[in-house]
Design a protein around this nucleic acid. Structure first.
Lengths: 335, 335
DNA sequence: AATTAGATTGCAAACGTTTACGAAACTAAT
DNA sequence: ATTAGTTTCGTAAACGTTTGCAATCTAATT
């Protein structure tokens, strides 16, 4: 097994000390410019590559940022990861990526592995099932910088980058109201999720501002996937209370509803109007195209990465700052 | 700045040697089971976390796999990354992800950073602009295990996991032929890309096997994006030679064509039939839905990860083996 | 009581790099 | 020719962990 060439090897060949080589390689000012040249030439000749893990070990710090998401393949997250990678690259960081598959234990284990790997910081989007604040407080104690993006633990005074769920929801519902819908339902996600609560808050605020009554029957909580939309429509049908319009927690749920509504022979938006959340690609392509709310994943990712890198570079392991990324209502034919 | 607790700290507190602590922590058989208990208890009490970078440094090896893709956000690659992460996780590896944005220099720089980070191996899907074999041969020289997935350098005897481009293309064209189309065009990607060539080979083979003539006018090379499909249709119109059917290099190109064909007032599949490649989600949703070829991204990723891990664990830095993942023709209304 | 085998633990070096400190070599001024 | 100052380089320790080998201890055998 060939050994990699090290700084010592170069030093030996040149008859100088390893420390000189080390300094020369990074153009240290108090090394003779001639030796610098010789060293660099020799390094190239010998095909030297620095052993970053040795360097990081001695610095006790890496140039790696850990990224924790529920599921890599989901459009929002892959977009966010892309934005993160872009910013990280520009600042000389690499990214370590893992997915929790919405499993709390796995999420925590992944975080642990990353911290043990001495990542410079973490970007975390928590899983659906994560409610426990304690492990994140432990991260704060251990001085591991991190910022939440998209999905955050509530009531923690740390960095966060989130979409403007409240504003987006408000705008969507307002749009429905102005289109003369009155009986507007809110189909939310899991009760404890911040996005569920925030979007509900937006819904309620809009309804209230326009003096529209809201029945508690109109508000429901469930899952985040297409099948959940399907289930909800079935339940609505058996319950026999049909809305004039539905504001759904996200696009998959809206798409599930969309399919079922059409299958039931109802027209969108004449019988039931529909709005989703996220501007997944699919929403532009269904018939009729779905009105939805754009929240740019790569921008959220990029901003979160910037915030984290800022913390890292200023040695502030944490500071309480929430950045809210504006959403944009995209009006299509479903409303 | 709080220092992390180390093995030495535990040793000191317990009045034993660091080496004993190290061994105890991993349940070494020749350590008294009683000391093991004491050590483990103390470690938990002191909130000890192993410093993986120190361990990896001393082993001169990490449990990290580097993943290089052209663009993270593209559905195929995010799916592949997800499959990779899954397998990696099961084998105790983490993944370092970077994107080249189809830029050769950036790709190479990323590879370099990862190698310097002493990754255990690399999973590489090369960028569109990568044609140079040399840097990969250098990786072989340096004993860095890697396997290509999806997009590989040609004529290199290393591990590869690719979709069955030939078979998929053959099946697609055969399907068109059986549906009585004769004047079938092939709209390819960049000329040098392996997928372009392989799919063309499938096209030619099918045409030949069914004794259909092929004009060189019917075969064209270009880009991989939607806009390229758009451009091609314009060119076809100005050239005035219209196909009965088109087999496009991938879904985006097919979708571009799809849009333009409809805008031109032509009917799909009556006037022009159309087949794409990849089974992007969008293909199921356009009207009419697009016939396409499924190549499961997560399976390709997972297989590539398994192959790489196998190489890593057997200390075979390279072996020449190509795994071809079967494709599946998904027949929809566009053909 | 002396020897030995086996079980358990400690010593010390090593992995490649960085860096504080000091030594040497050179320059220029006296 | 001496000194002071400057430039350039070398020495050695450190980062946290693992591991080959030596050392100690226990208990069993002679």
């Amino acid at each position: 097994m060939k050994r990699n060439v090290t700084i010592k090897d170069i030093a030996k060949k040149l008859g100088i000390a390893p420390s000189t080589v080390s300094r020369a390689l990074k153009g240290h000012p108090e090394i003779n410019s001639n030796t610098i040249k010789r060293v660099k030439a020799k390094a190239k000749e010998m095909n030297y590559h620095p052993n970053l893990i040795a360097r990081n070990f001695q610095r006790q710090k890496t140039n790696v940022i850990g990224v924790i998401v529920p599921e890599i393949r989901h459009q929002f997250f892959s977009g966010a990861i892309s934005g993160i990678e872009e910013v990280a690259y520009q600042h000389g960081f690499s990214i370590l990526v893992s997915q929790s598959n919405q499993n709390y234990e796995r999420e925590q284990k992944n975080i642990d592995v990353m911290v043990s790997n001495q990542v410079a910081g973490l970007l975390i989007s928590i899983s659906e099932t994560t409610m426990n604040k304690a492990p994140f407080e432990r991260l704060v104690d251990r001085n591991v910088p991190f910022v939440f993006f998209d999905r955050a633990i509530e009531n923690m005074d740390v960095g966060k980058v989130v979409a403007d769920d409240f504003g987006g929801a408000y705008e969507a519902v307002e749009h429905l109201i102005k289109a003369r819908y009155k009986k507007i339902f809110y189909i939310g996600g899991p009760r404890h999720l911040l996005i569920t609560k925030e979007r509900l808050r937006g819904y309620n605020a809009a309804m209230k501002d326009y003096n529209l009554p809201v029945s508690s029957d109109w508000i429901m909580f469930g899952g985040l996937d297409e099948e959940d939309g399907v289930k909800w429509f079935r339940k609505l049908m058996t319950r026999g209370i049909l809305p004039e319009a539905i504001f759904a927690i996200n696009d998959p749920v809206a798409i599930g509803l969309h399919m079922k509504i059409k299958q039931a022979g109802l027209r969108i938006p004449q019988d039931i109007a529909l709005i989703g959340f996220s501007n997944n690609m699919i929403t532009a392509l269904v018939d009729p195209p779905l009105t939805t709310i754009e929240q740019s994943p790569s921008i959220i990712g990029a901003k979160a990465a910037k915030m984290l890198i800022n913390q890292i570079e200023n040695n502030q392991s944490h500071f309480d700052h929430t950045e809210v990324i504006e959403t944009r209502l995209i009006i299509r034919q479903s409303s």
